[in-house]
Computed example of a mutant assay.
Amino acid sequence: MESFTRLTSAAAPLPEADIDTDIIFPARFLLLLDRKGLGKHAFHERRHRKDGVPFVLDIPPWTGARILVTQANFGTGSSREHAVWALADFGIRCVIAESFGEIFYANCFKNGTLPVVARGEEHAAIMSEAQAGREITVDLPTQSVVLASGRSIGFDIEPHRKRSLLLGLDEIGSILADDEPEIAAFENRHRGARPWLFLSKGQLAYFADTIEELG
């Protein structure tokens, strides 16, 4: 998983609440299991409207934006992890919202995407910068969103999730990193108690030859 430290980008404004995972990634694409290429289906209905109205991510200066600024309850609804996969494949590394769907929020960290909660006047300031097409910087080490004016807005993040993003650790990587001594101790005990499960290829070949001779 790609690590997240500091990201500077135009921030695409999506001033709408209750954008659910079916809007982010429509259900009919759920049969696609390969994460690569899912980005082309992100916000599919919004990006392929019959009336031809363009979606914000397809309009300069927000084409190629790596930050999305939206409102409350982003990612609510179905727990599909595809929603985060599609955003990440599209290039979105950070979503700033007033609140998130709980499962979507957790899935972001498992896939190298940073969800930032901002509320009130601070959220309004970030949205204003996004709508003006100005770049903003999201700095994870200092837990801050820095506007073009130089104003810094702090945000909260759980320490273990921050560490995982900084180191580029997915869920399995985090478990291995945090519990490596305990895992190694268990493996050593297991090997000592059941050595026959850890025979070398040479030892296995010897037993196979012996069984064949006896047979």
Rank of each mutant, 00 (worst) to 15 (best):
F4Y: 13
T5K: 12
R6E: 13
L7C: 11
A11I: 02
D18A: 15
D18F: 14
I19S: 11
T21S: 09
I24G: 07
I24E: 06
P26D: 05
F29E: 04
L30I: 15
G39Q: 06
H41E: 07
A42H: 05
F43L: 08
H44D: 14
E45H: 13
R49W: 10
K50S: 14
D51K: 04
D51Q: 07
P54S: 03
P54Q: 12
T63N: 14
G64C: 07
A65Y: 03
A65F: 01
A65W: 02
R66F: 11
R66M: 15
R66V: 11
L68G: 02
V69F: 02
T70H: 05
T70F: 12
N73V: 15
F74P: 04
S78T: 12
S79H: 00
W85N: 03
F90D: 01
I96G: 11
I96C: 01
S99D: 06
N107G: 15
C108Q: 03
L114H: 03
L114R: 04
E121P: 09
A124G: 09
A124L: 13
A125P: 08
I126C: 04
I126K: 07
M127W: 00
G133C: 09
G133R: 01
T142C: 11
Q143M: 12
S144A: 14
L147N: 00
L147S: 06
G150K: 01
P159F: 01
R161H: 12
K162E: 09
S164K: 02
L166F: 05
L167V: 01
L167N: 07
L167Y: 02
E171M: 14
I172T: 09
I172C: 10
L176M: 11
L176P: 07
A177K: 05
D178H: 10
D179P: 05
P181Y: 09
E182G: 03
I183G: 04
A184Y: 01
A185I: 08
F186K: 09
F186W: 12
R189C: 14
R189W: 13
R189Y: 08
H190V: 14
R191L: 14
R191K: 15
R194E: 11
P195E: 00
L197K: 11
G202D: 13
Q203W: 05
Q203M: 14
L204F: 03
L204E: 12
A205I: 11
F207H: 13
A208G: 02
